[in-house]
Design a binder for these strands. Sequence first.
DNA 1: GCCGATTTGTCCGTATGTATC
DNA 2: CGATACATACGGACAAATCGG
Lengths: 239, 239
Amino acid sequence: MPKAIYEGIYRDLKGKIQEGTYSYQELLPTENELTQTYNCSRNTLRRAISMLADDAYVQPMHGRGVRVIWQREQRVPQGSLDGVESFDEYAQRNDVQPTTSVKSFEHVVCGARLAARTGFPEGSDLIRVVRVRALDGVPRQVDHDCFLASAVPGLTPEIASVSVYQYLEGKLNMRILTSRRRITVQLATDEDCSYLKLGPYNCVAVIESQSFNSAGIMFEYTQVRHHPEEFSYNTVSRR
Amino acid sequence: MPKAIYEGIYRDLKGKIQEGTYSYQELLPTENELTQTYNCSRNTLRRAISMLADDAYVQPMHGRGVRVIWQREQRVPQGSLDGVESFDEYAQRNDVQPTTSVKSFEHVVCGARLAARTGFPEGSDLIRVVRVRALDGVPRQVDHDCFLASAVPGLTPEIASVSVYQYLEGKLNMRILTSRRRITVQLATDEDCSYLKLGPYNCVAVIESQSFNSAGIMFEYTQVRHHPEEFSYNTVSRR
DNA sequence: GCCGATTTGTCCGTATGTATC
DNA sequence: CGATACATACGGACAAATCGG
């Protein structure tokens, strides 16, 4: 049971769109009708609709109605990252076996160069981790992580080899709420080549990301270098 | 003057964060205080705050306040796409000269393969355009566009060589409201190599995108193949 | 082209819940 | 425990876009 009413309505409508109760290019029932079926206020309903619009499931049209724009075939394909899904969640969703190999794990003090690149304040105490992550035994990505040491007490190489996020959420009760990302394409380094079997590719897809916890503290900077094959980043933009 | 009150507040707060009136890691004034300074309702103010949170400018903390997480140095760098910014808008923002060369322009009927790839219904009448776009004379990207012919009446190669979006917005009064995107990395084709001076790179960054107009009609599918150099896609994810 | 009905967009005031301090 | 501050929800009012007669 969802905590909030708007979230329950959001999920219900989303499910109904996915299963075809409301299909591509159709109009949803009007707000007045939906407030009656869900027995809620118009504001609450509109919040749910707005979330569906953010997901590119529907598009509200002033004075006309709300059109469904979600297409079944267009569903997020197998090889895709999106939102804040973790490597393990992704593996589980696609029913493949994730493995992680920790290549290095060290405490460092943030210098000027690292500060400029990561956004951490100079002089911060950081934990730097390099990991190679594979799916069904095939190396897919090289992770370069920097954690704010004070924010991840008790982090060990053993934990890093399983799932840092499970540790953060489970033990430390910390959640990623906001994450800024930059996606670029870079020439593969010798390190990339040694860890990933790049085949014909001489480039990797790079996602840099700064993550903020619920206290608004940036506790993680990550640079993930992906094998180009199967790499796909899906997103929605609206204005 | 912005149309809506919430938008004015949003812009004002955004500006104050950018100019340092409220700086990184500080708390904004409380909602009660801000409703007084802006003389608006709490709902309206919260809407503006929520938009700032979507931009990763602030992070609201339940019971504690709203923390600024925007960093000056972290501002969207020169070579970056984001949101629905067009090539020309991007060129103007970075003060470089955009040029476009139309390589092909043809009417086609959407076949099964194209339908599966683009999301257009099979049998649709489409206009297919290939363009090479350069900044200050340096070819940066190859655009493969498919427009729904019925949605872009009067589109000509001459218009395509300037700006399709100016035509759509100015003449046809059509706006992109929602756009679904997929970012991948692909081996450069012979065509890519002939148009772009890829240098050491043997890959391109590819952004595929489906665009919906204000009527909820998908009127455009685009595949833009970017030179990896200077390519950067910035985004925010929240949960 | 006008007008009224419908439908979404904006805004307000208020009440209550919940997390933090 | 009380005070503070953000989160959720309701109901009502009016504006703006659309559509049919």
